[in-house]
């Protein structure tokens, strides 16, 4: 096929493209609604939600995941554009992540040795991981599907960012149910859940977002 012939058929394709970025936000949000509603219907919302959201320590169960998720969400959207080279927004996510890791390390250091392991293990780690990952599945799949229309300069990073975003949002939703408020517990397992979803996003991005 000559290039002129290719141009002629490209120009003959009159299906207009849809803007990618707004659809990423739309589809992810829409994909989150059903799994979130189901999870909360099955697990229930904690009774003292208002107090928990106002108390400085438990408040972090929402602030930290959202502090990571929202910048990562914007970064993922920006990374669907081919000319994007730097995403300064990710520094905010990084700061939230470093804060969480520092806090976890401080908690480990200040907890007496015999209490450390039981504190980390807690009593609901399986429900925690399972919930965060299953709430994430649908919105992540929808987001990646929309992002296949994108032209990412870094497909794996792009996938990791959307995984981080969806994982963080799912963790914040799970926190509406979860009553284990020890930082040792939630920093460990929320963090791990978010990282697993991030990893899934990175692998999916590597294979599915190439163009």
């Amino acid at each position: 096929m000559k290039t002129d012939q290719l141009i002629a058929i490209l120009a003959g394709d009159t299906v207009l493209p849809r803007r990618v970025v707004p659809r990423i936000f739309g589809f992810t949000a829409a994909g989150l609604v059903l799994p979130a509603a189901m999870a909360l219907a099955i697990l229930g919302v904690r009774g003292d939600l208002m107090q928990a959201m106002a108390a400085p320590v438990t408040m972090m169960k929402w602030l930290l995941p959202l502090g990571v998720a929202l910048p990562a969400f914007v970064a993922a959207a920006r990374l669907t554009r081919p000319q994007t080279r730097r995403v300064p927004m990710l520094w905010i996510a990084l700061v939230a992540g470093i804060a969480a890791v520092t806090w976890l390390l401080l908690s480990v250091i200040t907890t007496p040795a015999p209490e450390l392991w039981p504190g980390v293990i807690g009593s609901s780690r399986q429900a925690c991981l399972t919930s965060i990952i299953s709430i994430s599945a649908l919105p992540l799949a929808l987001a990646i599907r929309v992002m296949r229309d994108g032209a990412s300069p870094a497909p794996m990073h792009c996938g990791a960012c959307i995984g981080l975003a969806v994982g963080g949002l799912s963790a914040a939703i799970y926190a509406l149910h979860c009553t284990e408020d020890a930082p040792l517990f939630f920093l460990t397992w929320y963090g791990l859940g978010i990282l697993i979803v991030t990893g899934i996003g990175a692998v999916a991005g590597h294979y599915l977002l190439r163009w």
Partner: peptide
């Protein structure tokens, strides 16, 4: 050219086109 065609939904019409084309 095919990528420019299929990915033009990633161009922000508020921005100049050339940097986007060159990136592709």
């Amino acid at each position: 050219l095919m990528a420019i065609h299929l990915k033009r939904g990633t161009w922000d019409p508020g921005q100049p086109l050339r940097p986007w084309v060159y990136a592709i």
